[in-house]
Amino acid sequence: MTVVADIAEGTDTADPYALTHLDVLESEAVHIFREVAGEFERPVILFSGGKDSIVMLHLALKAFAPAPLPFALLHVDTGHNFPEVLAYRDKVVAEHRLRLHVASVQEFIDRGELRERPDGTRNPLQTVPLLHAIDTHRFDAVFGGGRRDEEKARAKERVFSLRDEFGGWDPRRQRPELWQLYNGRHAPGEHVRVFPLSNWTELDVWQYIAREKIELPAIYYAHVREVFRRGGMWLAPGAWGGPRKGETVERRMVRYRTVGDMSCTGAVDSEATTIEQVIAEIAASRLTERGATRADDRLSEAAMEDRKREGYF
């Protein structure tokens, strides 16, 4: 077996009877889903159609099979999402007969409860609809696909992350999680964010997708797309406000490492059209996907932590 094949499959050929690295991560995530099912009354899974939420849903379905998934799904729709990702979301929901709640940023803008930003991005506007949905449906545990390797503020967060009655995150209130013991206790009005993929890396996620043969939206693989350059990133044109005067639209071979709002998620130049090629590309990268392609994380040195304190994912 070649080194590339080993990387793609996430295997360890030293001991054929030992659990692989991916087996251990999968087991941990399944344990977390079952812990939440036993501790909380109304959990929900944040599902955007991005690769991390897709893997998270796959693990949740595995955790309770052959029974139906005991949780609903929640998507905060900015109105600027990639059409391919929304189509994938709806396909998965229909295929598994899942319950989906959609919190719309556009509806809050139409009611005057939110205002458009001058830069056109709506990603930071997701917090208010998210907290409104959590309060309306009385969700007491919210699964998110965040990973510690993505960004330094997320590296501080525990698997069970307590949020106050306003949805805010205080790193000083983080609880110890020795021996995989998770404390879900919370006061009325508070809730807990749960991150089953905390200990995964981007490479782990892709290796697991390859092993489990999980289908992804096509934009995760290299394809020819119209893009324009802004802030050192290739952004997709759209009604959100791009391109501006002087920004030239080009057709390039690109793919997306992460998927969020079209206004803040950049594509990367790539020839990786297969999952094996994507894995080899990621293995050679020295930048996380958020560091390389998310404009919303570049607003300040502590942009993510500031948003998390306000109630962001």
Rank of each mutant, 00 (worst) to 15 (best):
D110S: 03
T136R: 13
A283Q: 07
G260W: 00
L203G: 05
V278R: 12
F71Y: 15
S263N: 14
P124V: 11
R185C: 11
W179D: 15
A5R: 14
G246A: 10
L125R: 03
R230W: 03
A133F: 00
G50P: 11
H137M: 09
L178Y: 13
F228S: 11
N199P: 04
I209E: 08
E202D: 06
S270P: 12
H58W: 12
F47L: 06
Y17R: 14
R230G: 04
V278H: 01
V105Q: 07
R298P: 05
I7D: 00
R294Q: 15
T127W: 02
G10R: 05
E305H: 13
R307Q: 13
T201Q: 07
L25F: 06
V76R: 06
I209G: 10
H191T: 08
T121Y: 04
F143H: 10
G232A: 01
W169Q: 01
G232V: 00
G10S: 02
P196S: 05
E212K: 08
Q180I: 01
A292V: 02
R97W: 02
R257L: 15
D110Y: 06
T2Y: 09
G146M: 04
E151H: 09
E95F: 05
V92T: 02
A302K: 08
P16W: 04
A141Y: 01
S198F: 10
L74T: 10
W234A: 12
E202W: 00
R122T: 09
L178N: 11
L114V: 00
L46P: 07
Y256G: 08
D297V: 01
G144W: 00
S48N: 13
T127S: 02
P217G: 04
E39S: 15
F139M: 08
D261L: 09
A284N: 00
E150T: 05
V194E: 09
D164A: 13
L86P: 06
E177G: 07
H132T: 05
Y182G: 09
G241F: 05
I109R: 00
I219D: 11
Y312V: 07
S104A: 13
R163Y: 08
L61D: 09
L19G: 11
A295R: 15
E281D: 04
G184V: 08
G241R: 03
L100Q: 06
E310W: 03
R251C: 12
A141S: 04
R193K: 05
D204K: 06
R251I: 07
E157A: 14
A292P: 04
T258K: 07
L162R: 02
L125T: 05
F166R: 15
S270Y: 09
G231C: 04
G231Q: 02
Y88M: 09
K213C: 09
S53P: 05
E276M: 03
G291I: 04
R290K: 11
R42N: 15
A103R: 07
R122M: 03
D204F: 06
E95M: 02
N81M: 15
A283N: 00
R148P: 04
